[in-house]
C-alpha cells in the first residue's frame, strides 16, 4: 500500500531522512516509531505529497502522491499540528472539507457519521473552545469523513490524557477492523506495541527495523534495561544475592550512600527478569516498596540499536 525506496530529504544542511525505505501492507496497523526529530513527520509528509523527496521513489496505493487528487480521495491524514480553522464549529469544519470530495447532502451526512464515529457531539461550540482531546478527535473525523482506504496519523496521542489515549487506540483499531489501513506514528513505544500489526523503527532519518511487534520488541529487549528497586537495606542485600544466584541481572548498582535504599538492576532480558524477580520476592518473603523500569528513554534505546 505504501512503498518508499531509498528516499532522502534535506532542508538546507539538515538531513531529515536519508536513504530510507519502508513498506506498509494493506489492512495493517503499522506503528511508526522513533524518537523526536527522527524524521517521522517528514516521512509522513512525503507519503502525503506535502514534501518532495530529493531522491528515491514514493508509491502510495500504486501512485505518486504529489498533487494527485484521485489518490487524496482514498487517503486521510491527521497531522501532528493543531491545523484546524479555529473560528469554525466542529461539524462545519468536517462538512466544509468534505464538500471538496462529496456532494452537499452526502457531505453533511458523512460529517455527522464521522463525528459520531469519533464520539464528538458538540453543538454550537467553536473549535477554539475545544479541549485538546476534542481537537484530536475532530482531526480524525475530518480525515475519515470520506471513508479512506489509508489513514495516516502523526502523533495522534499527543496531549491526550490516559482515557483519551485509550479511546483513540480503540477508534484506530475499529477503523482498521472496518478495512482501513493505518500508519500511525509515535515516539512512545507502549502506545503502539499492542495495537500495531506491524512496526517500523526509524532513527536519524533511516529505517532501523521493520517487522512484527514481537520481533521489534525482541530487538528492543536486547537493550540493557534498568530497573529501580526501592526497599529497606537488608531486604535489598538479600534480593541482590538471589538475583545474582539466579543470573537474571548483568550488573547491580547501589546508591553511593551505604544506607541507600535504592538499587538499580541492569538486565538484557526483561522478559525473564520481571516474572523471576516477582517469584523471588514472593518465595523469600522479601519486602520491596517500589519497583519500576527506568528504561523509558526511547532515544537511549535507539542509540543502542544503531
Amino acid at each position: 500500500m505504501i512503498e518508499l525506496e531509498n528516499v532522502s530529504k534535506s532542508f538546507g544542511d539538515v538531513v531529515a531522512i536519508s536513504n530510507m525505505s519502508m513498506h506498509v501492507k494493506t489492512g495493517t496497523i503499522t506503528g511508526f516509531l522513533g524518537p523526536n526529530g527522527a524524521g517521522k513527520s517528514t516521512t509522513l509528509k512525503v507519503v502525503m505529497g506535502e514534501i518532495f523527496p530529493d531522491l528515491g521513489t514514493v508509491n502510495v496505493l500504486g501512485e505518486n502522491p504529489v498533487n494527485n487528487i484521485k489518490l487524496k480521495q482514498r487517503t486521510g491524514y491527521v497531522s501532528e499540528h493543531d491545523d484546524l480553522y479555529q473560528w469554525m464549529k466542529g461539524k462545519q469544519f468536517v462538512s466544509s472539507l468534505a464538500r471538496l470530495l462529496l456532494p452537499r447532502e452526502e457531505a453533511e451526512r458523512a460529517a455527522k457519521e464521522a463525528l459520531k464515529t469519533v464520539g464528538l457531539a458538540v453543538k454550537g461550540k467553536k473549535i477554539q473552545a475545544y479541549s485538546k482531546g476534542m481537537r484530536q478527535r475532530l482531526k480524525v473525523a475530518a480525515a475519515i469523513v470520506h471513508n479512506p482506504d489509508l489513514l495516516i496519523l502523526d502523533e495522534p496521542f499527543g496531549g491526550l490524557d490516559p482515557l483519551g489515549r485509550r479511546e483513540m487506540k480503540k477508534l484506530v483499531s475499529n477503523l482498521n477492523q472496518d478495512g482501513v489501513t493505518i500508519l500511525i506514528s509515535s515516539h512512545i513505544l507502549y502506545e503502539l506495541d499492542q495495537m500495531s500489526t506491524n512496526m517500523i523503527l526509524i532513527h536519524r532519518g533511516q529505517t532501523l527495523a521493520e517487522g512484527a511487534p514481537s520481533e521489534i520488541l525482541e530487538l528492543i529487549d536486547q537493550f540493557p534495561h534498568q530497573i529501580l528497586i526501592h526497599a529497606p537495606i537488608d531486604q535489598l542485600k538479600n534480593l541482590s544475592k538471589l538475583m545474582i544466584d539466579e543470573s537474571i541481572v548483568n550488573s547491580l548498582k547501589f546508591g553511593a550512600d551505604k544506607s541507600s535504599t535504592d538499587l538499580v538492576a541492569i538486565t538484557n532480558n526483561p522478559k525473564e527478569f520481571y516474572p523471576k524477580i516477582t517469584q523471588l520476592i514472593a518465595e523469600n518473603n522479601l519486602f520491596v516498596e517500589h519497583l519500576e523500569s527506568k528504561t523509558d528513554n526511547i532515544e537511549a534505546i535507539f542509540e543502542f540499536l544503531t
Partner: peptide
Amino acid sequence: MVNKQNNTKYEYSPP
C-alpha cells in the same frame, strides 16, 4: 465512543 463507520466508498469527485 466508537460507532461503526459507514463503509461507503465515495467515487464522486466534484468538478
